[in-house]
Computed example of a mutant assay.
Amino acid sequence: MSIPGFSPFPPIPQRSTPEADFDAKMYALFQHFATTHRNELLAFIEFLETNSTVIGAALNGTTIGLTDPAAAKFTTLEADSVGGGAVQADGGDLEGDGKLVRMDGALAAALSRGGQYRGATAEYNIDDAAPGDAGLVSVSNPGTWPPGNNGTFAWMTTQRIYSGETVLQRATFGYQSTGTPATPVTFERIRSSGGSAWSPWSKVYSQASLLGTVSESGGTPTGAVIERGSNANGEYVRFADGTQICISPDFTNLDVTETTGALYRTAAPISWTPPAGFGGAISMSGAVLSQGNSRTHWGTLRVLNSNSIDISVFAPTPATDRAVRAMVIGRWF
Rank of each mutant, 00 (worst) to 15 (best):
T296F: 01
S163V: 14
N293G: 07
M103G: 05
G5Y: 10
E258Y: 05
R113Y: 00
K203V: 06
P8A: 06
N305Y: 12
I247E: 15
G96M: 05
G115H: 07
N60I: 09
I329R: 13
I64H: 13
E216M: 11
T144H: 01
Y236K: 00
G195W: 05
A72C: 06
D241S: 00
G115M: 04
E165I: 06
R331Y: 11
A109E: 09
G151C: 08
S112R: 02
L29R: 03
A319D: 00
T222S: 12
L29H: 02
A134S: 10
A58G: 01
V214S: 00
T183K: 14
S248M: 03
R325V: 05
A24F: 07
V185F: 12
S192P: 04
Y117D: 03
L168W: 11
T257Q: 15
A20W: 09
I245M: 13
G5P: 00
T300M: 07
S112F: 11
R295E: 15
T76C: 07
P249R: 02
P318L: 12
S312R: 09
T186D: 04
G85N: 05
L100W: 07
L59Q: 02
S140P: 14
S283F: 13
F333S: 04
T17W: 00
I161W: 13
W145G: 04
T252H: 11
D21N: 02
M327R: 15
P316T: 14
T62C: 14
L66Q: 15
A315L: 03
A24H: 07
Q116C: 11
G92I: 09
W155I: 06
A110L: 05
G277W: 00
E188G: 11
C246Q: 15
A86G: 06
G229M: 05
N125D: 14
G179A: 01
Y27E: 13
G277K: 02
V324F: 00
E258L: 01
F33C: 08
F33M: 10
Y124Q: 09
G234A: 12
D93V: 06
Q159M: 15
A171I: 11
D104Q: 04
L107M: 09
I190V: 15
T273S: 09
T75W: 08
T259E: 01
A208W: 08
F47M: 05
A43D: 10
A197R: 10
T273R: 06
V303H: 02
A267H: 07
Q169E: 07
Q31M: 13
P147V: 11
L136F: 10
L301R: 02
Q169G: 06
A24C: 10
F47C: 03
T296S: 05
R102S: 12
A197L: 11
A232D: 11
S294H: 12
Q176S: 06
W155K: 04
S7G: 01
T144V: 06
R189L: 12
Q169V: 10
S138G: 15
L136Y: 09
A34M: 15
D250G: 13
L66Y: 02
S294K: 15
M26S: 08
D127Y: 07
R325C: 03
R189W: 06
A86C: 01
R238N: 06
L211F: 15
S248I: 05
T172R: 08
S193M: 14
T63H: 11
P269K: 04
G194Q: 04
Y205F: 10
I55P: 11
G119H: 09
T158E: 01
S290P: 06
